[in-house]
Design a protein around this nucleic acid. Structure first.
Lengths: 217, 217
DNA sequence: GGTTGCTTGTGAAGGTTTTCACAAGCCGCC
DNA sequence: GGCGGCTTGTGAAAACCTTCACAAGCAACC
């Protein structure tokens, strides 16, 4: 199979989300409609789907339920995934209570924190355990994906810990660069970085007129 | 000025974050070192920077403080930005208390919620106001960027509301597609979608062996 | 001052992704 | 059964992005 680009994967997830939203309302959808709803083009939609096979019917469009099935299969969502949240601060707590995770196929089955005051308590039905017990709990409960919601100083150590425990993938909210720990897949979500993309967009029109120059000289 | 790609902007933010991390420790840094730390290549780093001018010294590298200044200018971070958080649920509360925002130049100056029980209370020094008062408060406090942390059902309405109030950009955590409201810039962070990118990566090796086929027939 | 070692800035090459455009195929209707 | 309207799937073209490779320039040392 050819290599699939990151942006294609992102779009496939988006298509799936949209399709689930209209599931039941419609039986068929055209690439044109899917494109409008996802802010893409019909050719792009067809190309993305054709990377994996031929799922539409010429003259009619794509069957919504069938396409949902297919996209779930492509993205590996034909089954549920077991997730652990590491760091039960404000963000971690928010994640433990986030329904959007279970709705999309992710079950939070474990939570960890360094704070002895939190360890032993329960939040949204999940018991909070110490970091020391992470390897054992991860194995017992079959955790496959870790979410790092600790302060950035701890993220590096936690990532190694998760890798050693056999977790396959990590999503980190810590704004630091986590080295890849083969074969564990690591991805970082940095809120401030996303805001910076916005400020760049807001500023670039101005910069176009006054090119950037060195400060010093 | 040429159009700058989204990925280039993302990398520039990353370089800036890394440089701030080593600021003080070093005076100079080479494209090679910056590349290693950001998981890129030296040619890529140089190309990215050369899009905006010529900031390095041949044979020596880039001056760390100067490059920080330059990147801040490019990204529009030579000043602070005023941000409002809409929706003070768990995620919204986490955002109000997130130090990473002010450290990177973003001041949360307003918070809004529909819940009458929350309106009038204060959290992390920010008073929570009703959505009705949003247009007035946004104008009074000069809010430039909105962060949507409401349930998805409300996101569309809030986005319009922010656009009408004159907010320039929005970062939304609601997993729905928000239509662009020119000239307001909108970007969505969907946690589940990021997890789906991970599950795709975890699954695609398997899929390579057994190509995807239609379910029905 | 010349030589050596290193690093930038940048055209050109190479690779990838998106867009274009149209043949192939489905459906419904006459 | 044939025709017309519509939509997919896909090569080919265009646009875009990354990597290569090297001249230009700086610094240190002899």
């Amino acid at each position: 199979m050819n290599k699939i680009s990151e942006s294609a994967v992102r779009r496939l997830s988006l298509y799936l989300r949209l399709l689930k939203g209209i599931s039941g309302e419609r039986e068929l959808i055209s690439s044109q409609e899917l494109a409008e709803q996802s802010g893409s083009t019909s050719a792009q939609v067809r190309k993305d789907l054709s990377l994996f096979g031929s799922f539409g019917q010429r003259g009619r469009g794509y069957s919504v339920p069938e396409l949902i099935d297919t996209l779930e299969r492509i993205l590996g969502l034909e089954r549920r995934w077991r997730v652990a949240v590491v760091g039960v601060g404000k963000l971690g707590s928010a994640l433990l209570g986030y329904r959007g995770l279970s709705e999309r196929g992710f079950d939070v089955v474990a939570a960890f924190d360094v704070d002895a005051g939190k360890v032993g308590t329960e939040l949204n039905g999940i018991d909070i355990r110490s970091i020391d017990s992470l390897p054992g709990v991860v194995r017992e409960r079959g955790v496959e994906i870790g979410i790092i919601a600790t302060p950035p100083e701890e993220a590096e150590r936690i990532a190694s810990c998760l890798a050693d425990a056999g977790v396959s993938a990590v999503l980190s909210f810590a704004p630091i660069e986590l080295g890849d720990r083969d074969p564990m897949v690591v991805r970082t979500m940095d809120l401030a970085l996303e805001l910076e993309r916005l400020t760049f967009a807001l500023t670039s029109a101005r910069n176009a007129a006054r090119p950037i120059t060195r400060t010093g000289s």
